[in-house]
């Protein structure tokens, strides 16, 4: 980020480093998002009383879990500052799904090789992104967009245009099994992931360094963190979790097709911002992102039960998103 030439639009200094210190602003965001979600559920039930039945709620939350995990990388990258953003996650998710399907091919024995391959490739993707962003100083928007293009082509080449393969039975079980109508295995995976993510962001050295670097490069550097390494790790994490999301998505869908991950890119940015993470960096939480994901997924599901056609759905989706964004993601006015 151009510390020397462009004045930063930093948020009030109370914006802190970890979830416990984040203070009223983010908690407010999550509270508002949660209330909005509840409002949407009620609205949905007005259109169709079955909207509130446990099975439906379970389905919506499951979708939200996938979206949330897909947005984890985005959360980390945005917190790391430096205009961080990762538009390549669509590509990583798609490639992850295609590769996992090919390697697993419906066998439980294929799980470990698939995981290794997926994680390895994710690290590679993160390294490529970091090389461009940190070494060549390409703006993250540009670099990750370019990498997304490359990943799209790699995906096609890997499967020769026709993706094949099925998830291993164990993975399909995790992806699809429902313990109770309202509780799927994926939801449990989501909760565990949230817990781990929270510990990772708030209680590890890396997590502290991440927030510090996002807040203020120079100060972080002086206190021992190394901004470049921290940011590189952020992109690597994003690549790895993106590929793993593809792996998971394969389990959820039980089949694979081209560009499975494309639909997640911009909504992940929206989820992150709605959840209270600021583009300026240094502030945010994964719990917020997850709540943002739930809100967006609920909205999308609500649109199904409303009696309108595709055009109407698109319009309402856009307008609702604008209203939600207007509600509490406003960048501070210059006066502050």
């Amino acid at each position: 980020m151009n510390q020397s030439t462009v004045p930063q639009l930093d948020l009030p200094p109370q914006g802190g480093r970890s979830a416990f210190h984040i203070g009223k602003l983010v908690r407010n965001n999550m509270f508002v998002a949660a209330s909005l979600t509840i409002a949407l559920f009620i609205a949905g039930s007005l259109f169709n009383p079955n909207f509130l039945n446990p099975q439906n709620i379970g389905s919506i939350f499951t979708l939200a879990v996938i979206m949330g995990i897909a947005s984890f990388g985005q959360t980390v990258v945005v917190i790391s500052g430096g205009d961080g953003i990762d538009l390549s996650i669509g590509g990583s998710i798609s490639l992850g799904a295609v590769m996992s399907a090919l390697v697993m091919n419906g066998q439980n024995s294929g799980i470990v090789p698939a995981l290794l391959l997926v994680i390895g490739t994710g690290i590679l993707i993160g390294l490529v992104n970091s090389a461009g962003i940190i070494l060549a100083k390409v703006p993250p928007l540009v670099m990750t967009m370019a990498v997304a293009n490359i990943l799209g082509i790699v995906q096609l080449i890997v499967c020769n245009g026709s993706p094949t393969g099925r998830p291993a039975p164990a993975i399909a079980y995790i992806g699809t099994h429902r313990i109770f109508p309202i509780l799927t295995v994926l939801m449990i995976v989501g909760v565990v992931f949230m817990f781990l993510a929270r510990r990772f962001l708030n209680n590890t050295t890396y997590g502290h360094q991440l927030f510090a670097v996002g807040n203020n490069d120079n100060a972080a550097f002086l206190s021992g963190a190394r901004p470049y390494i921290v940011r590189m790790m952020a992109y690597i994490l994003s690549g790895v979790v993106g590929m793993l999301t593809g792996f998971l998505l394969l389990g959820y869908n039980s089949f694979v097709f081209i560009n499975m991950g494309m639909a997640y890119v911009l909504p992940s940015v929206a989820a992150v911002v709605i959840g209270g993470t600021s583009f300026a960096g240094g502030k945010g939480s994964f719990s917020g992102t997850m709540v943002g994901a739930i809100l967006l997924t609920t909205l999308a599901s609500l649109l199904i039960v409303i009696n309108t056609d595709e055009a109407g759905r698109q319009i309402i989706n856009g307008v609702a998103l604008v209203l939600i964004l207007a509600l509490y993601t406003r960048e501070p006015s210059v006066r502050q």
């Binding site: 389905s59 869908n253 097709f257 499975m260 599901s301 199904i304 039960v305």
Partner: peptide
């Protein structure tokens, strides 16, 4: 219910999952 699934198996599956509950 009349929906659009865009020739997309994933979207169709999501829509159907929802319709199983709501319709």
């Amino acid at each position: 219910k009349h929906v659009n699934a865009d020739w997309d198996q994933g979207k169709a599956k999501q829509l159907m999952t929802q319709m199983l509950s709501t319709f």
